[in-house]
Amino acid sequence: MSTHHNPPTPPRWPISAILRNLLLFFLLSSIGLGFLLRWLPPPTSGVMLYRHAEDLLGHGLFHAIDYRWVSGDEIAPAAYLAAVAGEDQQFFRHGGFDINSIQSSLAVYSHGGKLRGASTISQQVAKNLFLSPSKNVIRKGLEVWFTLVLELLWDKERILEVYLNIAEFGDHLFGIEAASQHYFGIPAKKLSRPQAALLAATLPNPFKLKAAKPSGYLIKRQQWILRQMQNLGTLH
């Protein structure tokens, strides 16, 4: 009499366990990546990859990106001061999120005004480095997480250094060095205060605010940043 043995049933992982493991992997890998990038120059960024995807999906073409990493001491002090003056004057005082600016923006919106951006430099680095320009609730949540990672693992000087190196200054133009060479024909180390202020003035929207052909609004914003730089004096 022959007997048949059924093959063992492979274990089944419940969905909750799979999701928990995926979440744990994401948290640990993002912390590990943030730890590495505390010292290593990022080879690319989420926004750069997004621009490549736009090119390939929209036009079927590949356009090279001008991205030139430089160390912190190869960037003019005026560029650091202009970025803080124009984008986040509380940068060295907050822990990644400017609560007062967020509350002010929400108050204006609740009274019928336009919802203003209140992203800090730390948030912008998290968004530009790890994510894409698309806006949705999930991406905003990820932005908050990566901002916490950066604030935990990096010092403020590193955040600002990476910010200036990966910021988008024009069409397929990333970083203060590439922008300095493209617009002024000089390295970032030699930027003057007016030049640094002009570049910082374009950061909210470098496609609309063009450093090559400054509009009246851009000139006014540059002058405002120069006054803020004078008022700040130093970064700390």
Rank of each mutant, 00 (worst) to 15 (best):
I102C: 01
P43A: 05
A82V: 11
L40G: 07
R93C: 00
A64L: 13
G117R: 11
L129I: 02
Q124V: 03
G32L: 15
L56Q: 14
H59M: 02
A83M: 06
F130Y: 15
A118Q: 05
G96Q: 04
Q124M: 01
R68H: 09
P77K: 08
F130E: 05
S105Q: 09
L56D: 07
I31G: 11
F62H: 15
Y80V: 06
H111C: 03
L57F: 13
L49M: 15
S71K: 10
A126R: 01
V84G: 07
A107T: 13
P43D: 01
I99Q: 10
G72F: 07
Y50P: 07
G58F: 14
L33S: 08
L37W: 03
G95M: 09
G113L: 12
W69Y: 08
I31E: 12
H52C: 07
Q103R: 13
A85F: 03
I31A: 15
E74C: 11
E74Q: 14
L61A: 12
L115Q: 08
F62R: 13
W39T: 15
I75S: 00
A76R: 02
D88M: 05
S105Y: 05
H59Q: 12
D88K: 09
R116H: 15
N100L: 15
Q123V: 04
L106Y: 06
S101K: 13
G95N: 14
L106V: 11
F91G: 00
P77E: 11
W69I: 02
P43G: 04
I102V: 14
Y109W: 14
S104L: 06
N128Y: 00
S122A: 14
A53D: 13
D55F: 01
A64G: 10
N128I: 00
Y50D: 12
S122T: 11
T120E: 02
A64D: 10
K114Y: 13
G34I: 04
P41S: 08
I31N: 08
V47P: 01
F130K: 02
D55P: 07
A126V: 03
N100A: 15
G58N: 11
L40S: 05
H111M: 07
H94P: 00
G96K: 01
Q90A: 08
G60H: 12
M48L: 10
D55L: 08
H94E: 01
I99T: 07
F91K: 04
K114P: 00
P41A: 06
V108E: 15
S119L: 06
K127Q: 01
L40I: 13
S71E: 15
L61P: 01
S105I: 08
V70A: 06
V84H: 03
L56V: 15
K127I: 01
M48F: 05
A79K: 07
I99A: 10
G117F: 07
G58A: 09
G112A: 09
A126E: 03
D88Y: 06
Q123P: 02
G112I: 07
R68S: 04
H111V: 01
K114D: 10
T44E: 04
V70Q: 02
A85N: 02
T120M: 03
S45W: 01
R93W: 00
Y109R: 13
F130C: 02
Y50Q: 12
I31P: 02
T44F: 10
P41L: 03
H59K: 10
L56S: 09
Y109Q: 13
L115A: 13
L56I: 15
H63K: 14
L81D: 03
A85V: 02
T44P: 06
L36T: 10
V70D: 08
A82H: 03
G46C: 09
A82F: 08
L57G: 02
R93E: 08
G95E: 12
